[in-house]
């Protein structure tokens, strides 16, 4: 068994592989939505509007959380469990902060009169960013589970696979947001 494990180390763990295919699948969903957005932009009554400043803060938040989850993985690999737990909690909190900032941003937009049904150009914003937020919330829930596991006395796991998968997914949602943010800034 020992031998098999080391021999297969070079190969990617199947669960990680599943995650990567899932990521490509989710990417295609966002690609579908953003390309629909590009096509629709050519119509005459396209409305231009400014993104609230708060989205810059949320972008910074999720970028920092990417760093903290990276630190968490590194700490886990080096066996520094207390640092791992700290970084995991930080990422978890930053994830929640990100979602709250997004919601606040949309409340601000709504108050400015940029509501869901006003114009198609704005309508697109809500499902696209909303779907991204759903994926972040999924990640936050996964983080919560990992966090509980990290503190449970009963569970002693030494496999880095779940932690690494978590971080891959987290970097992915981070990347998707940065893509969407740049897309929304450039395309308007």
């Amino acid at each position: 068994m020992e031998l098999v494990m080391t021999e297969q180390r070079k190969k990617m763990h199947p669960h990680k592989f599943i995650l990567w295919i899932a990521i490509s699948s989710i990417t295609l969903m966002f690609a579908g939505l953003t390309s629909a957005y590009i096509i629709k932009r050519n119509q005459p009554n396209w409305l231009e509007f400014k993104l609230p400043v708060i989205f810059w803060y949320s972008t910074a938040t999720i970028a920092i959380s990417s760093v903290t989850i990276w630190l968490a993985v590194r700490a886990f690999r080096q066996g520094e469990m207390s640092k791992y737990r700290k970084m995991l909690v930080t990422t978890f909190v930053l994830g929640i902060v990100f979602v709250s900032l997004q919601v606040t941003g949309f409340i601000q937009l709504w108050k400015q009169g940029i509501t869901l049904t006003r114009n198609v150009s704005i309508s697109f914003l809500y499902p696209i960013v909303g779907l991204h937020a759903v994926h972040v919330i999924g990640g936050v829930i996964a983080l919560l589970i990992m966090f509980l596991k990290a503190f449970s006395r009963r569970q002693k796991t030494y496999s880095a696979v779940p932690v690494e998968m978590m971080s891959t997914y987290w970097h992915f949602v981070d990347f998707i947001w940065i893509y969407l943010f740049i897309f929304l800034l450039m395309i308007r």
């Binding site: 295609l28 579908g32 869901l116 499902p127």
Partner: peptide, 19 residues
């Protein structure tokens, strides 16, 4: 996933008044 995005937009159109 592309069908899913199409369906989500349709659900928005049906229930939330988007166009």
């Amino acid at each position: 996933p592309v069908l899913l995005s199409g369906c989500i937009l349709l659900l928005f159109d049906r229930n939330l008044g988007t166009s």
